[in-house]
Design a protein around this nucleic acid. Structure first.
Lengths: 352, 352
DNA sequence: CAAAATAGTGTGCTCGAACACACTTTTTTA
DNA sequence: TAAAAAAGTGTGTTCGAGCACACTATTTTG
């Protein structure tokens, strides 16, 4: 990359023998420019590959941007706590550029809560929305409303299946399931009794766990040798203490299972009840919650797949800000890597 | 975070009943301000927690920043290719802010080449240097020269041991070795014959491989049960074809080894010669070179540890730019996560 | 005590883009 | 053909910080 002179509008005006006003009208296609002047200026713009000074532009615009974060209340589901960190970090970075964040929480267990709260997010004072679209149908309604208002939005955590889902940042959940399978396979080798376990998945968007299960099964289906029994189980809670009992009962009545793939962050509930004298088990689950890390360190959990909610949320905010402040183009589908975490490398992923 | 009015210097001047010139002198501690005015302005600054508008500031300063990248020639060692991508991406992001990149390559096999090339990097036209300090002693000499010139610098890839090594971005190599050990352990279980293999490490900074070996051994030393034989080997080349023969001979004469830990990206050389009918082997190495990925996909290599040279270089450039453009404070030691890569999740880490 | 040096203060221009507005020239309309 | 409308062009101000410079008030010096 060679040294490049930075051309300003004034430079271009001189080169073209017109005034900066005319150059400005050409750049912004505001019309009121004669054929001759238009061509002269356009040629020069092309020749020098004019790049406007973004600093000057954003000083002039001097936008004050208000972003809405529409996400589950982390007090209700701690999975979302790292998102706050990521968002706050991005907010800290962009606040000198006039970006302000406002959180709008909803209850991830309650569709109605999402519907009412998403109404708040449509307030015209918000210049953009970052959204965790847990509820498929309601979220589509919401982003349609955004599009009607021409309000930029960005999805994170999970994509919307049918919608032409632009502006998504997250992971490939099918592949995520395959990774879980690979880990269990390489740990248990030749044959095993494997359980896919969906814990307490009444509220999370169903696609989430379905995709992971599909990926998981696809891996084992492709295997040429080895003998594996794959079965899926749904362990749901009805009231607070009930879930523990359900899991305990499940474990006790299935002594043959030695591979456990838990499709969400609730793996600590299973780990807490797993008897350590099961031989050659392999336990794989999701997310670096403190409880999960505890069982990772003590060796009950073998691997955690890192969905990196912090990074997802962080990138969501930076993308929206860069777009609104500097008109940067943002990649449409933004898949972040799926990190494999064990007891030795988890340190790199927490409290970055 | 609540809505905050953005105060300007003019606002403060009005509040304090002075002119913006006086406020400016207070902020920049340029003196020539009376006691009374000083206190009034300082109090107001404290009260409102004044944050200068960085956009306006950098427009005024209108710095054009030239960064020097002092690194090995990627044509000589392809390990460095991803760095170029990362740097170019960062460069692309910051070029609208007046940042220009110039590469200064040296031959990683040749100390003298580093010494001569590092002289170029000291040219006063460079506003900052990003450096891969392969050669310990020479690099220390270099950064001392930088400090004398008050030229900001940043290290990536590996740290300098003795120097008070500020401004480093990279990985914890000791921990990296432990991760390799953990992967081999969880794949091979109870007992194994394990080899630590340093291929062609005449040039790379010796600390690199030493730290990894130390970490690797420390993991197995801490194990309570299991029976593992750990031995380290150095396979060096003398002339081009010779290395292949050396490796082949090593493999053939050590049929008992089933755990291979190669401490650098040259693992493909070993993988290419490994007979597939060795049973229950586990092969772990470094870096996502195309050759390495090939053997990962075909199942010869079990895991690759991702040193993320791309990300390291990318962050190096962004840190330097943010520092020089916006005076942002940069974390001193910046350890990036150590990614575990297998045949299912490598896609997320390439061509981001 | 006048001249000179210094302390203290305010004004006004700059950075580059964006846009309002005034102005001139050409075209359209009655 | 005069008046009105539209097309085309340039000037000047704004955004906020930073700094040169001019200016007044006070202190120091010969």
């Amino acid at each position: 990359m060679q040294w490049m002179k930075k051309y300003t509008i004034k430079d271009i005006a001189e080169l073209a023998g017109v005034s900066k006003g005319t150059v400005d009208r050409v750049i912004h296609k505001r019309g009121k420019v004669s054929e001759a002047a238009l061509k002269k200026v356009e040629n020069i713009l092309k020749d020098i590959d004019y790049q406007p000074n973004l600093i000057a532009r954003s000083l002039k615009n001097n936008k004050n941007i208000l972003l809405c974060i529409l996400m589950p209340d982390p007090k209700i589901d701690p999975y979302w706590k790292p998102c706050i960190e990521g968002i706050d970090e991005a907010s800290h970075e962009f606040s000198p550029f006039g970006v302000t964040i406002r959180y709008v929480y909803f209850n991830p267990f309650n569709k109605d809560s999402f519907v009412t709260q998403s109404q708040l997010a449509l307030d015209p004072s918000f210049d953009g929305v970052l959204l965790a679209p847990l509820f498929q149908k309601e979220s589509i309604t919401f982003i349609e409303a955004c599009e009607k208002q021409e309000k930029p939005y960005f999805l994170f955590n999970n994509d919307l299946k049918d919608a032409d889902s632009q502006n998504f940042i997250g992971q490939d959940l099918f592949q995520s399931g395959r990774i879980g399978a690979k880990l269990i396979h390489s740990t248990l080798k030749d044959n095993a009794e494997v359980a896919i376990i969906h814990i307490d998945e009444i509220f999370k968007n169903a696609t989430h766990m379905q995709e992971k299960e599909r990926g998981f099964r696809s891996y084992f289906n492709e295997l040429e040798n080895g003998h594996f029994n794959i079965r899926a189980y749904k362990l749901k809670h009805r009231n607070a203490n009930n879930l523990k009992k359900t899991i305990k009962y499940f474990i006790d009545t299935h002594p043959e299972i030695n591979g456990f793939f838990v499709t969400n962050s609730k793996i600590n509930l299973l780990a807490a009840l797993l008897n350590k004298n099961r031989e050659r088990t392999c336990v794989v689950g999701y997310d670096l919650l403190p409880e999960n890390l505890h069982f990772l360190k003590t060796g009950v959990i073998d691997y955690l797949i890192h969905q990196n909610p912090r990074q997802q949320a962080y990138l969501g905010v930076t993308f929206l800000s860069d777009y609104l402040l500097f008109n940067k183009v943002i990649p449409n589908k933004n898949l972040i890597p799926i990190d494999i975490v064990n007891s030795e490398n988890f340190m790199g992923y927490i409290k970055r």
